[in-house]
Design a protein around this nucleic acid. Structure first.
Ligand code: FES
Ligand code: FES
Lengths: 146, 146
DNA sequence: TATAAAAAAGATAAAAGAGTATTTTTTTCT
DNA sequence: AGAAAAAAATACTCTTTTATCTTTTTTATA
């Protein structure tokens, strides 16, 4: 469904959002250690999110990552689009191309009609689930299962 | 969402099911030519489906592939499980492991509750969509867009 | 200003997925 | 029996994804 990179990115953003923000920066060492993710690999993912203005990064001592936007304004859709692109939302379920209906063409594939509702629900879920929601749920669990 | 192999497999099964069945066999050359798929790669996929009793294969002159079951009894779920496994239906949306609730454990991830409905709809769609349905739709289109 | 801490960038390596090529087995038909 | 047709099996190549390693740049602060 989602690539490893994308799942790591989502988990990292939830983690950053649920950190107590004193000076507001979280180092990548801490993130990768707590989430048990490879540090340099996660770094590239967070750089992508920073370029998309989802995160802010700052170098130097006491540097790190923080959210660049209100967590209520960051959705899973934003993160997925940044890392995996929007193919999962726009591709045909059985071809390697954009769904013809999304593309305003004709001749949908045989599965299209059955799949249409699921695609809508997929988009609805990802665009309505915010990092704020998720960080709250993550915070309410004693055990860190991010 | 689905791997290339899986999408090719679905398209091939729909194609086989919509062929006029005289002697009941369709050669892989014809399938790969009409669907524009690489022949030896498709062969491997059809072999997997044959091992799972979804297709029958016969060697020798006039050999080829045919459905092994009533197309009303073959679902997309059968094909996806054969080729991609059931990870898409059982995995956590943000971890590389099985969803803890599917696994009868505790501590669902922060996205779990929001994702639960989509997972159910995903399973419902794939398990209720049959090759019979899809072949009819494919057949009703003049243009072959399988 | 010098040092150290931290992310950015770049180069490389391993694994998986996708695709190709070749040989072997089975079967039909003459 | 022999030839030909077709799938099965095997081995290999290419590409993308995932992951690691090293060097560079930035910046806070001593
Ligand atoms: S054309 Fe296949 S999902 Fe729309
Ligand atoms: S635990 Fe993540 S989807 Fe169930």
């Amino acid at each position: 469904m989602l690539s490893s990179s994308c799942r790591y990115g989502i988990r990292a953003v939830i983690y950053i959002a649920s950190q107590p923000r004193i000076n507001g920066k979280t180092g990548i060492r801490q993130i990768s250690k707590d989430l048990e993710l490879p540090t340099p690999f996660l770094a590239k993912i967070l750089q992508q999110l920073a370029r998309q203005k989802i995160l802010t990064s700052s170098k130097g001592p006491h540097g790190g990552f923080s959210l660049q936007k209100d967590p209520r304004k960051i959705t899973l859709l934003d993160i997925v689009k940044t890392i995996d692109g929007d193919g999962i939302f726009t591709n045909c379920i059985i071809h390697n191309s954009t769904c013809t209906v999304v593309d305003h063409e004709k001749d949908p594939c045989p599965v299209h009609d059955d799949y249409a509702y699921l695609r809508e629900e997929l988009i609805r879920l990802f665009s309505s689930t915010t990092i704020s929601d998720l960080a709250m749920k993550a915070g309410s669990t004693k055990k860190i299962f991010i």
